[in-house]
Design a protein around this nucleic acid. Structure first.
Length: 445
RNA sequence: CGGAGCGUAGCGCAGUCUGGUAGCGCACCUGCUUCGGGAGCAGGGGGUCGGAGGUUCGAAUCCUCUCGCUCCGACCA
């Protein structure tokens, strides 16, 4: 993408309403525009990151054997009357009437609707296990939306639902989700710690939240800091292997890690003092096992091997996709701007032409741009007629992890400069070597 | 939902107390100079002062109502 033809409305000054760093940078980098309290337009740069995050979520869900579908944002009230939640959900649910005066709602979650789909089409244990998920906009009419996309009223969420024949199978689904979530967050450059949680209006007694440590987090967290060193890495996981998946969950949930909702001081005190940490975290996902709560209420049953009918065992699992943008920025930025992890960056690399209009630098930049594209890497090429300082400031603000700087001084020696946004370190090399190095960096992402 | 505050140009703000017909910086447009970390000079365009009603010779400014947004608290992906 050539910046001169892109739509990237960056702001030099901090918008007054933005209190936390991710909100400030998202506005300043031209990623979002607020349209109402807790409701945002996604501008091109923000949309690119949102799509990247969705893509990673999709890939990891499908890798775990979960199946995508898409349910609507608007739902009929009657479905929610069956579970009893139409009345229970309260003011947070946005209720709407259509022209026939039918009661509708903008979905805050989809347990009822997925159960309706299930009961309409599945009758036998032979069709299980089954996990369906979608990534769809949700609306929760929060009392107090704040922190930009971190607590919006409209937000993009991945929500998945598992259907299993018995409790053991459902708990395996729970574990499978935990592992797939760990891998998802790691690919986004995040350390998200599973913490035992309270269940809230979804219901159920087995639930973990995934927390990203950050000063600006809304939850107080208590943890053994050795959990932050745990990494899934590239290990090979067979998601159908119950024992292997359970072992991974055990590895990641044995050390103490709780939110204030489930914190137990007496247990926490047994953590060695050197590792005992209290901090704050951003909740970026939650998984639940809730058994037959919805299937019983809504008559979602399957016939078992011995011919009896049983309500299907269920769980649900959510990742706050739009919230993740904020969480990643909170976890990865400096005083100049965002620092995107390679996994989610809107563009893999930026090209800065220090002397636009100079035939040598222009030609070198065009060559780089095309060579990168040939490797499947779409660079953001700053071809504006701006001074070097302005170009650097823009690149730093929008946070592309790698920058190739092309100027007449370097070209005279046959080199360009490859700079890491994270470390600030620069290395001079030929244009060919820079392309090769960037390609190598992204080969593993 | 309780408490506090703010709406004046695209963004950040001053002007409101003490009414006199709207200003600064950034951004934008033109020209010249400049050109490896958000340039300088000169010129220029842009605002029914959130909305409605009222008081007044006269309202951004005073009064009433209303809408929107932000922050602090209790709730949540």
């Amino acid at each position: 993408m050539r910046l001169s033809r892109y739509f990237l409305p960056v702001l030099k000054e901090n918008p007054a309403e933005a209190q936390i760093v991710s909100h400030r940078y998202m506005l300043r980098a031209g990623m979002v525009k607020q349209q109402a309290a807790g409701i945002y337009s996604w501008l091109p740069l923000g949309l690119r990151v949102l799509r990247r995050i969705e893509e990673i979520v999709n890939q990891e869900q499908e890798r775990a054997g979960h199946i995508p579908l898409l349910m609507p944002t608007l739902q009929p009230a009657d479905l929610w009357r069956e579970s009893g939640r139409y009345d229970d959900y309260g003011q947070e649910m946005l209720r709407i009437k259509d022209r026939q005066d039918r009661e509708m709602l903008y979905g805050p979650t989809n347990e009822e609707m997925i159960t309706d789909i299930f009961r309409a089409h599945v009758n036998s244990y032979k069709d299980l296990p089954l996990t369906l998920y979608h990534i769809q906009w949700k609306f929760r009419d929060e009392m107090r939306p704040r922190f930009g996309v971190m607590r919006g009223r409209e937000f993009l969420m991945k929500d998945g639902y598992n259907f299993d024949v018995d409790r053991d199978a459902a708990l395996h689904a729970y574990n499978r989700h935990m592992v797939s979530y760990l891998r998802t967050y790691e690919r986004m450059g995040l350390t998200a710690i599973p913490m035992r949680a309270a269940s809230g209006p979804i219901g159920g007694d087995n639930t973990h939240e995934f927390l990203v440590l950050a000063q600006t987090g809304e939850s107080e967290v208590f943890y053994d800091d050795r959990v932050t060193a745990l990494k899934l890495g590239q290990r090979d996981i067979d998601y159908d292997d119950r024992a292997q998946v359970a072992d991974v969950c055990k590895e990641f949930t044995t050390l103490y890690a709780r939110t204030d909702e489930t914190h137990e001081a007496a247990v926490f005190d047994q953590v060695p003092e050197a590792h005992r940490k209290v901090g704050r975290g951003i909740e970026v996902g939650q998984i639940f096992y809730f058994g037959t709560k919805y299937s019983e209420a809504m008559g979602a049953e399957v016939v078992t091997k011995d011919g009896t009918k049983v309500p299907v065992e269920m769980g649900s699992h959510g990742i706050g996709v739009s919230r993740l943008l904020g969480a990643i920025i909170e976890a990865s930025h400096d005083d100049k701007g965002i620092i995107w992890p390679e996994g989610v960056t809107p563009f893999p690399v930026g090209i800065v032409n220090l002397k636009q209009g100079d035939s040598a630098t222009d030609a070198a930049c065009e060559g780089l741009y095309k060579a990168l594209a040939a490797k499947g890497l779409e660079a953001l090429y700053d071809d504006r007629d701006e001074r070097a300082g302005a170009k650097f400031a823009t690149m730093d603000l929008i946070g592309l992890p790698w920058r190739i700087t092309v100027g007449p001084r370097g070209l005279a020696n046959g080199v360009v400069e490859l700079t890491s946004r994270r470390t600030g370190e620069s290395e001079e090399m030929s244009a060919e070597a820079a392309v090769a190095k960037v390609a190598e960096i992204y080969a593993g992402v």
